[in-house]
């Protein structure tokens, strides 16, 4: 429960940052924090007491209780790499926005777009 609460705190931090911060780059950082919160939550669902990492060692047939759940690990592994590629794309866009409008402040951008 404590761990879920920490994930909720990170998520709230990220979404509040996305909504309240004035600068688009800081909003992007906040979005990354939110993504990590979701990943932390998923990975915590994969944990099993008394289990080990999902890599088969020597020995007999594996039993399900001996290993962590590999499915959330797989999903979150790909999610992390997708998140970095979307972050890179967003940063490329922000560099263009900055060089064209001379600002990354949301309010000033809206004023100049009008």
């Amino acid at each position: 429960m404590t761990i879920y609460a920490f994930a909720a705190a990170l998520f709230t931090l990220g979404i509040a940052g996305m909504a309240l911060l004035p600068n688009l780059l800081r909003k992007l950082l906040a979005m990354n924090v939110m993504q990590v919160a979701v990943i932390v939550f998923f990975v915590s669902l994969a944990f099993k007491d008394g289990a080990t990492v999902p890599i088969l060692g020597q020995g007999g047939a594996p039993r399900a209780a001996e290993f962590m759940n590999p499915l959330p690990h797989t999903l979150m592994l790909t999610a992390i790499v997708v998140s970095v590629s979307t972050t890179g794309l967003a940063l490329g866009l922000l560099v263009r926005i900055r060089s064209r409008f001379r600002t990354l402040n949301e309010q000033r951008l809206l004023d100049r777009l009008r």
Binding site: I39, V43, A51, T52, M68, H73, M76, L77, I80, V84
Partner: peptide, 18 residues
């Protein structure tokens, strides 16, 4: 918490690339 593959990815991506 035993998610070694996720930890590896996060270290490469978050610690370096981002």
């Amino acid at each position: 918490v035993g998610a070694v593959d996720v930890a590896f990815t996060e270290a490469c991506v978050g610690g370096a690339l981002t």
